[in-house]
Nucleic acid binder design. Structure first.
Length: 882
DNA sequence: TATTCGCGGGG
DNA sequence: GTGTACGCGAATA
């Protein structure tokens, strides 16, 4: 009987721990395997451990054995292996020893991982149970339940078919426009989408209000009970949705608590679904099922301007989302059947989209691959925690060779509040001061996996680090740390990296043949290997790591800096090329030829010759050609790149580093203009045209030719407008809408688009609703758009090619800004009967004739009459200022 | 120029 | 559950 491991936990049965393996077989049947006979243990180093543990009822046995401590080159020492009868008693025993001055090792490894690591079982690995005798129990829900005595971990590329369920809840706040509070506001409805279907249904709608095509319930409690029942019956392996970890699940759990519904929808009947809150974030544990929140996976994997479901769906799978305003959900819920139906569709749509994102983008693949490589469970990897993933992996590898890993917080490996002083001492990579100007034909040469390669080449490892001034054959790194030579002891970390890198090469080779599905899986695998290998260096530099070593982290970066330094020297002095830029593991050199083929030839030759000179496994590779390369500052550059594609054809691309074209607080015009100008500079090498283009945009802006949607900036209102301390543009817009007595006022959670109009007030107070602006023909503050939206990013780019701000705005050949504004104002004044502020000689109310020195802020007189601005030209309703 | 503050996603 | 530890841009000192 073979199955793939989704989750592992344990349960005490008759005072003995029983491990439970939740998995799926190749046919897609859910499996729960029980394994007993394994006991928790950890190690201790100190005097008279037996004596110190005398009378401890949890200790089963104490064995003297030899293990090697991982930090510092040293021989094995005598340690005590302490076996306990119950994993739950470990902390108490560990703390007791600690208080007696005993160092403990591996006394904080979760029991499931202790067993998994010892048995070579890992997340998504296939287990073959030799003697899986069927059993039956009430404690878990699975189609097959077996008692496992003997088993093997086997190699298998295919994954078992999984069952997915995506859901979404709608809730209604007691007060209109307020975010619902799970303490008092019930769940109104729940939509579920199944893959594969459940009882012939692709989806389901549960609600407490009857309606067409809706499963309605007379109470929230009954609805929640149904929700639990459906999950169990569908037997979902993967629960998904959009922000279910941050919202839906915590809400549902709180409501289950309130309505006294047992929150047991995991595969273990007697274990509740947990919601742990820390650092303001939720963590949900559901035994035996994977929690694949499309929102968090997309947030981690994509760099987008926004992460709302509407935006994400549009951007990533091209699906338009019909939206119901968040603040109006209450209205629709309480409204007509038709409105109610709209809300129900909206609810269902959210589940559908979350499911579509998950399956179309294969969001889980990456996490599955990482689980397979690292040995951690998928749920643990989804929750984040890179450190834990590496630590599990290290534990496995170090244990195999007789090393023990310190417990966290013991032996001074973690300073109480994070040793920031020390990590500040950690210097990073070397960044070469870029040579100013637009460069033609630049080769990008970079080191293949620089940090992992340095670790391998110089045998850098906690196990090879020389403590004190021991007399061994060693190499001293530029920061003064010493590591023993490979011949003395080949470090574990360099060997792990060697294996990982070999495996990656193998996988990449395998990828060349095979069907698309296999290729995809292999690609994920090689990516996961790369992620793991690259994470090691950072791990040692992380102050909370169990094996934190500033010596290791500093040695790696110091060797990196030295390597780059040497490479730059070689490029300039031996190869005779000018280095225009470089960062950490790359150098960019300028070459004389303008032919791509020549450039490539040079690149390959430089790569070969330099690699020959480099120590160990260090390799300098030719990566690509920048036909044009424009550095702005360190870490910020752009380039027009040429690279060989799969078929050997040249593929061009635009590379931008540290230059953002999308930002939350920029309007579309900013990004669009940046992209246009960058393209003109790089592809056409035409500075004049770039300047002209900029001026044209400015001109269009002044003449009102730019569509208002390109100028709209959006922000979400997160609390009641009154609750904001400072002045914020989007909040001001809402205040204005209220004052005008508009029907539809955005509420908490709504996204507000605004534009900045001309006026005398603070910037934020001049924010206006684009619809209102169009309706009233209000003028936008072009000055703001030029100074705050266009100039800041573009000035930096133009500066790099020697164009100053003055040239951009000044009285160039085209049209001066001042002139443009004046022209513009003149035209507008004539057309719309507005007056310039300079010309205003009086402000009065059209109704009661009351006069003002300053315009009333609400734009209306106390009596409610509209305010008129009078000038020599006569009264006008609007006024413009500079 | 460094440090603290506030917010995202969700209804 | 033999626990854990956000991340970034804006506002402010």
């Amino acid at each position: 009987m073979e199955f793939q491991v989704l989750d592992v936990d344990y349960k005490m049965v008759n005072d003995k721990p029983v491990l439970r393996l939740f998995g799926k077989d190749a046919e897609g049947k859910s499996v729960c395997g029980f394994y007993e006979g394994f006991l928790p243990y950890f190690y201790a180093v100190g005097e008279d451990i037996e004596g110190k543990l005398e009378g401890n009822p949890f200790v089963v046995k104490i064995e003297k054995t030899k293990r090697t401590l991982p930090v510092g080159y040293q021989e094995p020492i005598e340690v005590y292996k302490i076996t306990l009868r119950d994993p739950g008693k470990t902390v108490e025993t560990r703390e007791a020893l600690k208080s007696m001055g005993v160092d403990t090792y591996e006394a904080d490894v979760l029991f499931k991982y202790r067993w998994m690591n010892d048995s070579n079982v890992g997340g998504m690995k296939w287990v073959s149970a030799k003697d899986g005798s069927n059993i039956s129990t009430d404690s878990v829900s699975a189609q097959k339940m077996i008692q496992i005595k003997k088993f093997d971990v086997i190699e298998k590329y295919e994954d078992a078919p999984l069952r997915y369920l995506a859901f979404d809840i709608e809730t209604v706040g007691a007060t209109e426009g307020m975010m619902p509070d799970p303490e008092s506001d019930p769940v109104a409805m729940i939509s579920l989408v199944f893959e594969p279907e459940y009882r012939g249904m692709k989806s389901m709608l549960l609600s407490t209000r009857p309606g067409d095509g809706i499963d309605s319930f007379s109470s929230e409690k009954e609805m929640l009970e149904k929700f639990v029942e459906v999950i169990k019956e569908h037997d979902s392996d993967v629960l998904s949705g959009f922000n279910i970890v941050g919202y839906d699940l915590p809400y549902i759990l709180k409501r289950m608590e309130k309505t006294k519904v047992r929150p047991a929808f995991g595969r273990c009947k007697d274990k509740r679904v947990r919601d742990d809150l820390f650092a303001g974030r939720h963590r949900i544990s559901i035994t035996g099922r994977l929690i694949a929140d499309s929102f968090s996976m997309i947030k981690k994997g994509w760099n987008l301007k926004r992460y709302g479901l509407d935006f994400v769906a549009k951007e990533l799978i091209g699906e338009e989302k019909k939206d119901v305003k968040k603040s109006e959900i209450g209205k629709f819920w309480n409204g007509s059947q038709e409105q109610y139906k709209t809300l129900a569709d909206y609810c269902l749509q959210d589940s559908r989209l979350a499911m579509k994102l998950l399956l179309k983008l294969n969001l889980l693949d990456k996490y599955v691959a990482l689980a397979k490589i690292s040995g951690s469970l998928v749920n643990d990897i989804l929750e984040g925690g890179e450190t834990q993933r590496i630590e599990n992996y290290f534990l496995r590898e170090f244990n195999k060779e007789g090393y023990v890993i310190p417990s966290k917080g013991s032996n001074g490996n973690v300073s109480e509040n994070g040793n920031d002083d020390e990590s500040k001492d950690l210097k990073g990579g070397f960044v070469i001061e870029p040579k100013k100007g637009l460069h033609e034909m630049v080769l990008v040469m970079d080191f293949k996996s620089m940090y992992p390669s340095l670790i391998r080449t110089f045998n850098i490892c906690p196990t090879t680090l020389v403590l004190g001034d021991g007399n061994v054959d060693s190499v001293t790194t530029p920061n003064g740390s010493r590591f023993v030579k490979k011949e003395v002891r080949h470090g574990i970390i360099p060997r792990i990296l060697e294996n990982l890198m070999k495996e990656r090469t193998k996988v990449k080779k395998q990828m060349k043949s095979g069907d698309e599905k296999l290729k995809k899986a292999l690609d994920m695998k090689q990516l996961a290997i790369k992620v793991m290998a690259n994470a090691f260096y950072g791990y040692f530099g992380y102050h909370r790591a169990k094996i934190h070593s500033i010596d290791i982290a500093s040695s790696v970066t110091a060797l990196g800096r030295q390597t780059i330094h040497d490479t730059v020297n070689a490029m300039e002095k031996e190869f005779g090329y000018e280095v225009v830029y470089g960062d950490t593991d790359s150098v960019m050199i300028k070459i004389p030829s303008d032919k791509l083929e020549d450039a490539e030839k040079i690149g390959k030759e430089v790569s070969r010759k330099m690699t020959e000179k480099l120590p160990g496994v260090m390799e300098l590779e030719f990566e690509k050609i920048f036909k044009r390369f424009l550095p702005l500052t360190k870490k910020r550059y752009m380039g027009w790149s040429m690279e060989r594609g799969k078929e050997g054809e040249w593929k061009e691309g635009m590379v931008m580093k540290g230059i953002e074209t999308v930002r939350r607080d920029w309007c579309e015009l900013t990004g669009d203009t940046m992209k246009d100008i960058i393209e003109i500079i790089l592809k056409k090498n035409n500075v004049k045209e770039a300047v002209t283009h900029f001026k044209e945009v400015v001109k269009d802006l002044l003449e009102g030719k730019i569509g208002i949607d390109k100028l709209t900036i959006t922000k979400t209102i997160t609390k009641k407008p009154e609750a904001y301390a400072g002045v914020q543009p989007h909040v001001e817009v809402i205040k204005k809408m209220k004052q005008r007595g508009e029907m539809e006022i955005p509420g908490t959670g709504d996204r507000i688009g605004y534009v900045i109009v001309k006026g005398m007030d603070l910037l934020s107070k001049r924010a206006e609703d684009p619809g209102y602006v169009q309706e009233k023909g209000l003028q936008l503050d072009s000055r703001y758009y030029i100074d705050n939206q266009l100039l800041p990013p573009l000035e930096r780019i133009f500066n790099a090619i020697g164009v100053t701000k003055e040239e951009l705005l000044g009285l160039g050949k085209q049209i001066g800004l001042a002139e443009a504004i004046n022209n513009h104002h003149r035209k507008q004044n004539e057309a719309k009967m507005t007056v310039n502020l300079n010309e205003v000689n009086g402000i009065l109310c059209s109704k009661c004739n009351k006069s003002y020195k300053m315009a009333p802020l609400i734009g209306k007189c106390d009596c409610g009459g509209s305010v008129l601005f009078s000038s020599e030209k006569g009264p006008a309703e609007t006024v413009i200022t500079h």
